[in-house]
Computed example of a mutant assay.
Amino acid sequence: MSTLPTGVVIGVAVLLLGISGCSSAPVNVAAEVAVGAPAAMPADHATRPALGTDRTVHPAESWSAPDSGAKVSHGSGIVEFVGSSSITAIAAHSDLAVRGTVTAVSYTHVDGQPYTLSDVKVSEVLAGDAKVGDLITIVQPGGYIPLRIELATGQIDRSRVDPSLTQAEIDASFNAYHWDGQRFPEVGDDSIYFLTELTKAKAKSVVASTSLTGTYFRGWSDAGQFRATERNGGEAFTRHVDPAEVVPGDPDTGATISVTRLREVAQQIQS
Rank of each mutant, 00 (worst) to 15 (best):
V8Y: 15
I10K: 15
I10Y: 13
A13P: 13
V14S: 15
L17W: 13
G18K: 14
S23N: 11
A39Q: 08
H45T: 09
A46N: 09
R48D: 11
P49F: 01
A50F: 00
G52N: 04
T53W: 08
A60P: 15
S64G: 08
S76Q: 14
G77I: 10
A92N: 06
H93I: 05
L96G: 01
G100P: 04
A104Y: 14
H109T: 02
V110A: 04
D111K: 09
D111S: 13
S118I: 07
S118E: 11
D119P: 07
V120F: 01
S123C: 06
S123I: 04
V125F: 00
A127Q: 15
A130D: 02
T137E: 03
I138W: 02
V139K: 02
Q140L: 06
R148S: 12
I149C: 06
T153Y: 01
D157Y: 03
D162T: 02
N175D: 12
N175W: 07
Y177N: 07
R183P: 12
P185Y: 02
P185G: 03
S191L: 05
I192T: 08
K204H: 11
S205R: 13
S205V: 06
S209V: 04
L212Q: 05
R231G: 07
P243F: 03
V246I: 12
V246M: 13
V246D: 13
P248W: 03
P251A: 00
P251G: 00
D252S: 09
A255K: 15
A255V: 05
T256L: 06
S258D: 15
L262Y: 11
R263V: 08
V265L: 05
A266F: 08
Q267D: 14
